[in-house]
Structures are given as structure tokens and as C-alpha cells.
């Protein structure tokens, strides 16, 4: 087994950072997320490989919250369009958990398949090497296993780190991973170490049959009831590692400007508001329902998996305590109304 001591981790990141922009989990003031190692300030930032996960999901690395697409300049009736050059520096997401790796797999499905390839996403994604940190200690609100995620074996990872006594095992899985291994070879030692036994999950839920069952529950009164506490803010969607919906907007000063896309949320009224005034999902309940149906039924129908990796962030972050685990249980218990 390839192994390195915990004390070596910054050296390893430093080395990887010679050839790539390395994103590492940090606490930064009151926030936590994956931030570029280049921006690490030891007086202010705190590396958090010892915590369960970062609060802000890493999706912004492949799908930035705001992303310029092209700029334009209109002179009289003439117009020039200049596509944005997407930075192509290789980058490494270092220490990402299985749930968030799976989320990137889902984003890949969305942006790479079903007729069109999203070139903006592709330009960023192609440059990413994933160094995952296998999860032996699920948190209080983790339920990844229930959603078909293996916390110890993130499939799309190029390298898997496994925390062991005093250090980490480094396990390369792909050609991209081997390239990183070469880069840090002298920092790794060959050593047989004992892997931890994974801890049990506190929360579990059985997703089997939920997508199928939801087909008959669209008009069920439960949506009205369970959406009562929902404030229709966008926290659940923005904190979700899999939510990918975006808006396309323009910024201009006079005739010059640029078009950008930015994260959007199905919880907002404006999301489906049509220019003529009609809104198919005007009511809070309808938006609430669409979010859960998209995650648990519609995405499954289209892509064969639920759009949830059980990371637990929405469960933790919802100001009103809306809880997807509980929703799944309630769905399972619901009697079809017709």
C-alpha cells in the first residue's frame, strides 16, 4: 500500500499545486468549502480533513455560481460576439467525499449526455482530477448508502485516500491518478497498514420503489401539508451538491455587455415565470413538490438514479427543518389518493 503520514499532507498538496490548482477543504471564517490552495492563508483558514465534510458543496469548481459565457458589443445595428475563454488550468479536488464525487457523476450525466454536450461544463470538468477521501465515519445526517453511494469506494475518483492510524493510504484508480502518484512518489512510502472498520450510519432510508410510487402521488394532499414549513428560499438547492439548474442572464452597459449563467433555484417563483404572465408552478407547494419529484422521480426516470447522494446538507441547512429523509419515509407511507 502507498501511505503517507498526516503531517505530510501539506507537502503533498504543495507538490500537486506545482502543476495544478488544488482545491482543498477549508474552514474560512464562518464558511467551509473547497478553496484553492493558492488562496490558503494559515492565519485565517483552517484545513479540515478531520471534519466530516465542507458545508458548501464543491460543485462550483465545475459549475461556478456565476459563469460568463460570451461578451458582445453592438455598434449601431452591427454586433460582435466574443465567446468567453474558459480557464483551462488543470485542477485537483483534494479530499472530496464519496457523496460529492457521486454528485459530480450526476452532473456529468446531465451535462455530457442526452443529445447535447455543455461545452462550458466540459471545459472545466475535463481538467479535474478527483482525489477522494473515503468516509469511514458517517455523520449524524448522512445517508449516502441509502441513496446507492458507497462511502468507501467513490467510483469516479482518480485517487482514493483512506484515513488510517496517523496517516493516509493513497490508492490510485485511473491514469489521471497515476500521473498524480508519479508527482508525489518520493513523498509516499510502501507500508502495510490496517484499514479502519467503517462506522454505522445513524440515519437510513429505503429508497426502493419511491420513484415508481410517486407517479401516483402528484395530486396527493400531502404536498400541501409537508410544504407548510418551507419558506421557499434557495438554501436547499444551493447547498445541494447535485442541484444544477441555472439561469441565463445579461449584464450590459449601453450596447456592450456579456451574457452569463448563474445558479438558479426551482424554489423561486421567477424560475418558471413566463413573459406572458402564466406560471405553471406559482404556488409554494407546487415548487416544493417539483423539487422533491425532480430529485426522487423525474431524474430517476430520465437518468436511472435519484438526484440525491445522501450528503445530508439540505437536512442540516434548511431553516425550517424540511428533511428529505423524512420526506422519503412519508412518501413510502402515503396512500395514493385516488
Amino acid at each position: 500500500m502507498k501511505y503517507f503520514k498526516k503531517g505530510q499532507i501539506e507537502k503533498i498538496i504543495d507538490r500537486l499545486a506545482e502543476k495544478a490548482d488544488v482545491y482543498v477543504p477549508m474552514l474560512r471564517g464562518q464558511q467551509s468549502g473547497f478553496y484553492s490552495w493558492k488562496s490558503y492563508d494559515e492565519n485565517y483558514d483552517d484545513l479540515i480533513f478531520d471534519l466530516l465534510n465542507v458545508y458548501s458543496p464543491p460543485k462550483n469548481i465545475v459549475l461556478p455560481q456565476t459563469e460568463k459565457m460570451y461578451s458582445f458589443d453592438q455598434q449601431g445595428q452591427e454586433i460582435i460576439i466574443k465567446p468567453e475563454e474558459i480557464p483551462v488550468e488543470p485542477n485537483v479536488i483534494f479530499g472530496i467525499r464519496s457523496c460529492d464525487v457521486k454528485a459530480i457523476e450526476y452532473l456529468d450525466e446531465v451535462f455530457f449526455t442526452r443529445t447535447f454536450v455543455d461545452e462550458f461544463y466540459k471545459a472545466r470538468r475535463d481538467q479535474v482530477t478527483i482525489v477522494a477521501n473515503a468516509c469511514y465515519n458517517p455523520g449524524t445526517n448522512c445517508f449516502c448508502k441509502s441513496m446507492g453511494v458507497n462511502p468507501l469506494e467513490p467510483e469516479a475518483a482518480d485517487v482514493i485516500l483512506r484515513e488510517v492510524e496517523n496517516g493516509y493510504v493513497w490508492e490510485s484508480k485511473t491514469e489521471k491518478g497515476n500521473i498524480l502518484t508519479k508527482q508525489i512518489e518520493d513523498l509516499l512510502e510502501e507500508k502495510e497498514v490496517e484499514l479502519y472498520e467503517p462506522n454505522r450510519f445513524v440515519r437510513k432510508v429505503n429508497y426502493d420503489g419511491v420513484a415508481e410510487k410517486l407517479k401516483d402521488l402528484f395530486d396527493h394532499p400531502m404536498w400541501e401539508k409537508y410544504s407548510d414549513p418551507c419558506q421557499t428560499c434557495g438554501i436547499c438547492t444551493y447547498m445541494c451538491p447535485t442541484c444544477y439548474c441555472f439561469d441565463v442572464q445579461v449584464k450590459n452597459w449601453g450596447e456592450e455587455g456579456y451574457r452569463f449563467r448563474c445558479w438558479d433555484s426551482c424554489m423561486y417563483r421567477e424560475y418558471t415565470q413566463m413573459a406572458g404572465g402564466h406560471n405553471p408552478r406559482e404556488a409554494a407547494t407546487e415548487r416544493f413538490r417539483n423539487r422533491f419529484l425532480h430529485k426522487l422521480q423525474f431524474f430517476n426516470e430520465r437518468y436511472g438514479t435519484p438526484l440525491c447522494t445522501g450528503c445530508g446538507r439540505c437536512v442540516v441547512a434548511c431553516p425550517a427543518g424540511v428533511d428529505i429523509i423524512r420526506m422519503i419515509e412519508l412518501i413510502k407511507g402515503a396512500e395514493p389518493s385516488v
Binding site: F246, D264, C266
Partner: peptide, 24 residues
């Protein structure tokens, strides 16, 4: 059908009715 659309390529999410995207 008509729905609010932004991307046109079945990615941005909003024009779904069930699991179908109106734009795609």
C-alpha cells in the same frame, strides 16, 4: 407546449413537465 426556457438544450432545468424537457 410552452414553458419558460433558458438553455434550450435540456440542462437548465426549468422547462420540465415531469421528466420531459419541453425544449428537448
Amino acid at each position: 407546449l410552452e414553458m419558460r426556457m433558458k438553455c434550450g438544450i435540456g440542462k437548465c432545468g426549468r422547462c420540465n413537465i415531469g421528466s420531459e424537457y419541453i425544449c428537448l
